[in-house]
Design a protein around this nucleic acid. Structure first.
Lengths: 331, 331
DNA sequence: CTGAAAGCGCTAACAC
DNA sequence: GTGTTAGCGCTTTCAG
């Protein structure tokens, strides 16, 4: 069942049918109706492989992701999905579980499967970028780690986020401020820590303590417990992300340390849950919507050949003051 | 740059090149090498639109999802991804934010874009099923709500899950057992509640209290707070899912009610976080791996025309006893 | 405003 | 083993 069947049934030529499919204005209204009717009766849908072949484009944008279970990704993806739909593109997500080579042969990474690709927080970034460049597939990077020649990307200023979070704690009168950082292989984690250090230095202070952990509740929990055991608690903690922060708060409460009365905690990312547990977490929200929006624009412009020089956009995160931070107790 | 260029460069015909691409054994080794070399030098990749067109298949399986931020989905998706990859298929995810009509024209829902579709916990199920049937696209349902003629699906026995969870509480000596159910428009929520009712009835008991809430921490929290305010606390609570349960535990602890010493709580889904907060939640784990595995098999068999009668597979969930439940305190 | 013809890049008969 | 030919379903000149 193809365009010829429709042509036959409507008594017109395949060309006219094609014109109707593509909303060409140069079709007599009566004929358009005939064609539409035939399409309807035949339950006809144009073959997209054929369309892609002849047009040289697919209308699909691929996005490679590594993780689902996270509010930050969730928001970025949903905004990108909507923006792309507005422009007539579809977003196809592909999970890459960083199993090395296999992934690079992912269906996404074929020039004619997609019109462009968005790499969200890619794991094997260098490798992917090299491959995409080689295959000449238009692409952009979101929340990536490194700079590359000729590649546009949108990142968040994690340094500033770390700085702002720490500054907030300083403004509340805290001086004994500890940090629990995420894995330092992540640039974002390293930057947040750097912001923390700088804010402290600007205030003439030094870190009270620094520990590293995974981006999980349990590892934040462990670190806090350890500090309690060692009786080495600060008065404020800047956690590398909300999961860590949630774990910290949890451990403190178990031990009777009140948040924020006895100890203030700041997280990062504004995870869904950060606003649901009490005290609701003061945190740093990344501008996901902006990130996705700019990223999509950049990619689409590249695809349409309005290829300006590639740009690296750095977005400012925003401190969200809620209930897990308070003025230092006068004692 | 196409197959002809490769043919020219290697000094062989396009057919031979095609054979090499498709690993046909009937190519002289020396020639194969020539072709491979030419492909390499030209950095050639076969055009997949053309391949799809002529083969009548794409090698892509689409999966429609509604939500990312959830461990259950995360696990199902990852297993499906792996299983499909093993069989030479790629999984393309598409988010459908239930905006009504628009979604149905999703790129996934075009016969020749994908070889088959998996609908995971679809929202507008009836509509999607009707559309897919009409378009004659092979598909299966995972964790769906309704039964349909001629459609294979894999679901979890939520009734049994609810029954087992409640039975566990009964076995611990509890008799005052309340339930906080998820939105009853979800069959899964209704079934879990039904299991709860049945277990109680089998023990000659009646529900201590039943409330409904969203599948969120905050709504579980609210319900527990309300019960505390009204001084109407049961000795055990079966929550509709882990988020609700987490909210309940959180509220109870705030009020000095100890879990599990004073009150036992059971959740559902084994969310990532359920095992990270203390007390670690006793919960019901859905067999995601099995679900995805069976679903993929069903779909692939359908695609390959080994079309047995459509089947509805109901999988048993598994109670995970951890630390949020304990024997009823003798008082 | 409409249609005939060519061709997108590839694979599947069918010869040789 | 290898190549010639046809055609997958569609859009795009180019006439008319």
């Amino acid at each position: 069942m193809n365009i010829h069947d429709v042509a036959k049934r409507s008594g017109l030529s395949v060309v006219t049918v094609s014109r109707v499919i593509n909303n060409s204005p140069t079709v007599r209204e009566a004929n358009r109706q005939k064609v539409l009717k035939a399409m309807e009766e035949l339950n006809y849908q144009p073959n997209s492989a054929a369309q892609s072949l002849v047009r040289g484009k697919t209308g699909i944008i691929g996005m490679s992701i590594t993780n689902l279970n996270d509010s930050f990704y969730d928001r970025v993806i949903k905004v990108a999905n909507r923006k792309l739909a507005d422009q007539g593109y579809f977003l196809a997500l592909s999970i890459s579980e960083n199993e090395g080579e296999g992934d690079i042969n992912n269906f996404l990474f074929q020039r004619d499967r997609v019109d462009g690709i968005i790499l969200l927080s890619p794991i094997e970034e260098e490798q992917y970028v090299a491959e995409l460049k080689k295959k000449k597939i238009p692409f952009i990077l979101l929340d990536n780690q490194y700079e590359h020649d000729d590649v546009s990307s949108v990142v968040v200023d994690n340094f500033q986020g770390g700085y702002d979070a720490t500054k907030h704690l300083l403004d509340l009168g805290h001086t004994r401020i500890a940090h629990i950082g995420g894995p330092t292989i992540f640039l974002s984690a390293a930057e947040r820590k750097r912001g923390y250090m700088k804010a402290l230095a600007d205030a003439g202070l030094t870190p009270f303590a620094i520990e590293y952990s995974g981006f999980t509740v349990s590892s934040g929990y462990e670190v806090a417990k350890k500090w309690i055991r060692e009786d080495a608690l600060p008065t404020a903690i800047f956690a590398g992300d909300d999961f860590i922060a949630l774990g910290v708060v949890h451990a403190l409460r178990e031990e009777g340390v009140r948040v924020p009365q006895d100890l203030s905690v700041v997280g990062f990312d504004d995870q869904q849950l950060a606003g649901e547990f009490y005290p609701r977490l003061t945190t740093v929200r990344q501008p996901e919507a902006q990130m996705a929006g700019i990223g999509v624009d950049l990619l689409l412009r590249q695809i349409n050949g309005q290829m300006e020089a590639p740009t690296v956009t750095k977005l400012s995160p925003k401190l969200l003051v809620r209930e897990s931070t308070a003025y230092l107790k006068q004692s």
